[in-house]
Amino acid sequence: MTSTPGSAGPTAATTPPPSDPSPRVRRFTTAERLVHRATAWLVLICVATAACLYVPQLAELVGRRRLVVTVHEWSGLLIPVPLLAGLASRALRADLSRINRFGPHDRRWLRAALRRDHAPGSRPAGKFNAGQKLYAAWTAGAVLVMLGTGLLMWFTGLAPLVWRTGATFVHDWLALALGVVVAGHMAKALADPEARRGMRTGSVERLWARSEHPLWRETEE
């Protein structure tokens, strides 16, 4: 049997304090968290103004259509900007390439998620699980489509009328889908305080990392 800290004798006060049973590990850098926060605010403003333009009851309540349209256009246009600025960060670029790559474990994760399988070890994940990867890539593509169709509706001189009508159609339906998906993203975050703490403070408990992201080679703080 090996000795444990404090068992060496009554002079325990001079020994270093026992290490934290669950040290925190670094998950996101400051730059990454700023990018997330800025993007989140822009998306929230864009979605809120969209609702005020679109849902009759809200439109009736808020009115001021010109102002709401202007805020919607500019918040939407700016959504990609924080991420583009964040590309200057090496850590963010590294995470983007992690999100981009799908390995065999991601397929296992997805199959387990589809089967609602919560058994330990059934959902192997690296720093990002397969669901997070799909969410990130899908929303990135969807935001670009919203941006393109939005610009066609904004600058009516850009394209002939059929394009504009088509852009309106895609913009409306994709907005609905994006709203549902982003709400799902927020619901997932609300259900997991430690995941939220990771995005808020930059670090997570090692135990959490081990159970949620077992294949992630995390670094200690």
């Binding site: 992690r98 999100i99 981009n100 790559r101 799908f102 390995g103 065999p104 474990h105 991601d106 192997p124 690296g126 720093k127 990002f128 990867k133 799909l134 990130a136 890539a137 899908w138 990135a140 593509g141 969807a142 670009l144 489509v145 393109g148 169709t149 066609l152 059929v162 394009w163 009508t165 088509g166 852009a167 309106t168 159609f169 895609v170 339906w173 994709l174 294949l215 992630w216 080679r217």
Partner: peptide, 30 residues
């Protein structure tokens, strides 16, 4: 080995697929 480093670039494909679907949606909208 770190599983985060390899694998197929599914993320990029998904982004491109969304762009393609968006364009197709604009064309097929009527």
């Amino acid at each position: 080995s770190s599983p985060d480093d390899g694998g197929a670039p599914v993320g990029r494909r998904l982004v491109l697929a969304m762009l393609g679907l968006g364009a197709a949606g604009v064309v097929a909208a009527p």
